[in-house]
Measured scan of single mutants.
Amino acid sequence: DTINITLPDGKTLTLTVTPEFTVKELAEEIARRLGLSPEDIKDTHNGKTLDPSLTLAEYGITPGSTITLEIK
């Protein structure tokens, strides 16, 4: 299953994830792909900052969802 990550420059990154991924694991994968530190990444969905300890499923993030990435 894939989700879309909207980057600060407007580009989109597509990642393969499972509903059990935590937001922290997602940030780590994004950081790895972009050459950043996971601590520099802030993920938001529907205007809410995502708690790193919760899973994508707990936020109702499903395949095809879009998450907005902010760099701290």
Score class of each variant (00 low, 15 high):
residue 38 P to A: 11
residue 24 K to T: 04
residue 21 F to N: 06
residue 48 K to V: 11
residue 43 D to N: 15
residue 35 G to E: 05
residue 32 R to G: 05
residue 60 G to L: 03
residue 18 T to M: 05
residue 34 L to T: 12
residue 72 K to G: 13
residue 14 T to K: 10
residue 53 S to V: 05
residue 52 P to K: 10
residue 11 K to E: 11
residue 41 I to H: 03
residue 19 P to H: 04
residue 60 G to Q: 03
residue 13 L to H: 06
residue 39 E to R: 14
residue 59 Y to N: 15
residue 49 T to C: 13
residue 50 L to M: 10
residue 39 E to Q: 14
residue 16 T to S: 12
residue 72 K to N: 14
residue 46 N to I: 11
residue 64 G to Q: 02
residue 53 S to T: 11
residue 48 K to P: 05
residue 51 D to S: 05
residue 15 L to S: 01
residue 53 S to N: 13
residue 43 D to L: 15
residue 28 E to S: 07
residue 69 L to E: 00
residue 7 L to N: 01
residue 44 T to I: 13
residue 43 D to C: 15
residue 22 T to N: 01
residue 28 E to V: 09
residue 7 L to W: 05
residue 29 E to N: 05
residue 10 G to D: 03
residue 7 L to Y: 05
residue 37 S to L: 10
residue 48 K to M: 13
residue 71 I to M: 08
residue 3 I to L: 08
residue 30 I to D: 00
residue 21 F to S: 12
residue 60 G to D: 05
residue 35 G to H: 08
residue 48 K to A: 09
residue 57 A to R: 13
residue 11 K to M: 11
residue 62 T to V: 13
residue 2 T to N: 07
residue 38 P to R: 06
residue 29 E to D: 03
residue 48 K to Q: 12
residue 68 T to A: 13
residue 4 N to I: 09
residue 70 E to P: 08
residue 22 T to I: 01
residue 4 N to C: 07
residue 7 L to D: 02
residue 13 L to W: 08
residue 66 T to Y: 04
residue 51 D to E: 06
residue 55 T to D: 01
residue 2 T to Q: 10
residue 66 T to W: 06
residue 59 Y to I: 15
residue 68 T to G: 06
residue 47 G to Y: 04
residue 39 E to P: 14
residue 53 S to K: 11
residue 8 P to V: 08
residue 71 I to E: 05
residue 3 I to T: 01
residue 48 K to F: 07
residue 51 D to M: 04
residue 46 N to A: 08
residue 54 L to I: 08
residue 65 S to C: 14
residue 36 L to M: 12
residue 48 K to L: 12
residue 60 G to N: 04
residue 8 P to C: 13
residue 40 D to C: 15
residue 11 K to C: 13
residue 5 I to G: 02
residue 50 L to I: 11
residue 13 L to T: 04
residue 30 I to T: 01
residue 23 V to N: 00
residue 13 L to V: 09
residue 33 R to P: 00
residue 45 H to C: 13
residue 2 T to R: 08
residue 61 I to S: 01
residue 4 N to F: 14
residue 18 T to A: 06
residue 11 K to Q: 11
